[in-house]
Design a protein around this nucleic acid. Sequence first.
DNA 1: CTTTCATATGAATATCTGTTCATATGTTAT
DNA 2: ATAACATATGAACAGATATTCATATGAAAG
Lengths: 119, 119
Amino acid sequence: MKQPEAECCEELEIHTDTVEKLKELLPPEELLYDLAELFKVFGDSTRIKILYALFESELCVCDIAQTLGMTQTAVSHQLRVLKANKLVKFRKEGKNVFYSLDDDHVRRIIDQGMEHLGE
Amino acid sequence: MKQPEAECCEELEIHTDTVEKLKELLPPEELLYDLAELFKVFGDSTRIKILYALFESELCVCDIAQTLGMTQTAVSHQLRVLKANKLVKFRKEGKNVFYSLDDDHVRRIIDQGMEHLGE
DNA sequence: CTTTCATATGAATATCTGTTCATATGTTAT
DNA sequence: ATAACATATGAACAGATATTCATATGAAAG
């Protein structure tokens, strides 16, 4: 006869305790969601390229587009995402808009990622 | 009369230099792509939750599933992704497969992300 | 060797995401 | 005012991705 309510790993009751403890220890759902959203921003090569370009100097949209060999529109859409996530800030000067990195976390996060790759 | 070959920011010739320098300074296309791929892995709340759970202890698949309130199948698919990107390793013990974090970069990358959020 | 259990895998589906195209906004120069 | 330019935005489309369902694998127990 089967236990219909049995969830999994039935034989090892230790696990049930583990699971309960874990549920308490995990950060709130929403925070984990936000964290994933943040990493999602880094998870696109166009945006990574933009950020890398901004490591060197502040840049206007068309220079970024030219550097990456992409259209102004595509870059503008991605800058919007970066802006919304506070990874870049901007400064208007006449017709141009100059973008730059918002803080040092960006660099550190990317560096950590690079370190992981080099293994 | 229009210059058809003009790319952008025509008036400021400084920019053309900037762009050329930038193109040299940027890491190779492929590396940036790989980096984005890595962050993409962190860019999903299910995978973030799995990693957080593994911060505490090594876990078998069904415990992870139960902790997250998800199906075994969904978790298994995501573990596959984490495994492929060397973020987790595993150890087989009879019917069970125990997963754990592969290295400390995982923790550091996530911590940096969290720091960025708290601002 | 057959059943049960833990895990893995493949196909299908629904959702999300990035680029393009067309167009809008806002600034500078004529 | 009007034209030219830099940037932004909205809709549409194509490609990617996460979950589900059905099923396969592989180990332990009967």
